Amino acid sequence: MTDARRSKLLAVLAEDYDPPETFVLRPFNPGVPEVGQVRVRVRVHAAGLSFVDVLTAAGKYQTRPPLLFVPGGEIAGIVEAVAGW
Results as ranks from 00 to 15, higher is better:
7 S>Q: 15
9 L>G: 03
9 L>M: 14
11 A>V: 10
11 A>H: 01
11 A>T: 04
12 V>N: 01
13 L>F: 05
13 L>S: 04
14 A>E: 00
14 A>C: 14
18 D>N: 13
19 P>E: 06
21 E>V: 10
22 T>V: 08
22 T>Y: 02
26 R>Q: 09
27 P>L: 08
28 F>L: 06
30 P>T: 09
30 P>Y: 07
30 P>S: 07
31 G>D: 05
33 P>Y: 12
34 E>S: 13
34 E>V: 06
35 V>N: 12
36 G>T: 05
38 V>Q: 08
41 R>W: 12
42 V>P: 02
43 R>G: 04
43 R>S: 08
45 H>D: 11
46 A>P: 00
49 L>A: 05
49 L>T: 02
50 S>M: 09
50 S>E: 03
50 S>T: 15
51 F>I: 10
51 F>T: 12
52 V>K: 11
53 D>N: 14
53 D>L: 07
53 D>C: 10
54 V>Y: 00
54 V>C: 14
54 V>Q: 02
54 V>F: 02
57 A>D: 00
59 G>V: 05
60 K>G: 00
62 Q>H: 11
63 T>V: 10
63 T>K: 09
64 R>M: 08
66 P>K: 08
68 L>A: 07
69 F>H: 03
70 V>T: 13
70 V>C: 11
70 V>D: 04
73 G>C: 08
75 I>W: 01
75 I>P: 01
